[in-house]
């Protein structure tokens, strides 16, 4: 027992755990996505491989692995190969910060939130590199779009996070969760006495999360009906597979973050049964509810136009999030002002 708690072993265990978690999630979220799409479109989805299609991810994996990794002539071979690795790294790093339960965190940092956001923004660089190195016009157009999209959505997202920081007063993710204990009315989502626009803030965060992870209706990175496969046009086999996995890993990170910041993380919504494995259960429940919403949105809406996507960010989301920021500040200082004068 003592041996297991030594730092190197603990890190190794968590590393393996996170990789397994991400791998299993990426594989089975693809299946869940396809099943969910099938459900919404009134068809069964993959159901031939294994019972109810449960072995489909395995079959897909074998197929992708069996394919030749092509490096098209004229590309920057090094960057072309590096991009899939770079795109996979940030979500793995970020997941190390996420507290799955009060006692299950790979690495608890007092600047966890900062860490997650700084690593989260590397993601876009990988996509840009992949698109650029492909030497394909569609891929280049797509990577240009992805960069401007990610830059645009980073701002409202961070504004929302600053609002939350003002409320919580800490960057330690575990502490943020602990503050939300004791029932769902204590969650940041419902803290309307701090900021009456808290649900709106959550919606903004969720929209930004969709945009940051390049999910429909903001899937400019792929945009398959316009740009063939966007930044991934020239990728095949496992190179493409890794991009695909990274997309789902990013969704997991984004949704975990939303869960931590707004939905009370591993806290129980009824105020009891929130420690240990119960906590992990609550966390995963909330996480997968959010992921399901992401899938649901994808299969409901058409893709937004690129400039209306930027318009949405610069003209709607940023002003609103700035307003909520000011409002929160005012609401927090109101008692002080009140006390000072009266």
């Amino acid at each position: 027992m003592n041996f297991l708690q030594t730092e190197p072993i603990r890190i190794l265990l968590y590393l393996v755990g996170i990789c397994a978690f991400v791998g299993a999630n990426a594989a089975y979220l693809v299946l869940a996505e396809r099943k969910g799409a099938g459900r919404i479109q009134r068809r069964p989805g993959p159901n031939e491989a294994g019972f109810g299609g449960l072995l489909q991810p395995l079959a897909d994996g074998i197929k992708l692995l069996a394919k030749q990794v092509m490096v098209p002539p004229g590309t920057d071979a090094l960057l072309f190969r590096a991009a899939p690795l770079l795109v996979m790294a940030p979500p793995l790093m970020c997941l190390a910060m996420i507290p799955f339960s009060d006692s299950i965190t790979a690495r608890s940092l007092n600047v966890g939130l900062l860490f997650v956001f700084s690593f989260g923004s590397i993601n876009v660089m990988a996509l840009m590199l992949g698109g650029w190195a492909s030497r394909n016009k569609f891929a280049i157009i797509s990577s240009a779009r992805v960069v401007s999209q990610n830059v645009a959505y980073e701002i409202p997202m961070l504004l929302v996070v600053i609002t939350l920081l003002m409320v919580t007063g800490t960057m330690d993710l575990n502490e943020i969760i602990q503050q939300q204990g004791g029932g769902f009315w204590k969650w940041n989502l419902f803290k309307v006495w701090v900021n009456p626009l808290m649900p709106v803030t959550f919606v903004i965060f969720f929209i930004c999360m969709l945009a940051e992870t390049n999910r429909a209706p903001f899937d400019m990175a792929e945009a398959e009906s316009e740009l063939v496969a966007g930044a991934f046009t020239e990728y095949g086999g496992m190179g493409f597979g890794v991009f695909f996995m990274a997309e789902y890993a990013n969704i997991v990170v984004g949704c975990s973050l939303a869960t931590v910041l707004f939905l009370g993380g591993w806290q129980s919504p009824i105020g009891v049964l929130s420690g240990g494995l119960w906590g992990a259960g609550w966390f995963l429940l909330k996480l997968y509810a959010l992921i399901f919403t992401v899938i649901w949105i994808r299969w409901t809406f058409p893709r937004t136009q690129f400039y209306s996507l930027l318009n949405l960010s610069w003209k709607i989301l940023i002003p609103i999030s700035l307003f909520t920021l000011l409002l929160t500040g005012a609401m927090m200082k109101l008692p002080v002002v009140y006390n000072h004068f009266f």
């Binding site: 919404i40 899937d219 409901t300 893709r303």
Partner: peptide
């Protein structure tokens, strides 16, 4: 709708 990136309507229409 497929051109615009929406997948589901075509299946409803085909139904």
């Amino acid at each position: 709708l497929l051109d615009l990136g929406g997948f589901t309507p075509i299946l409803y229409a085909f139904d």
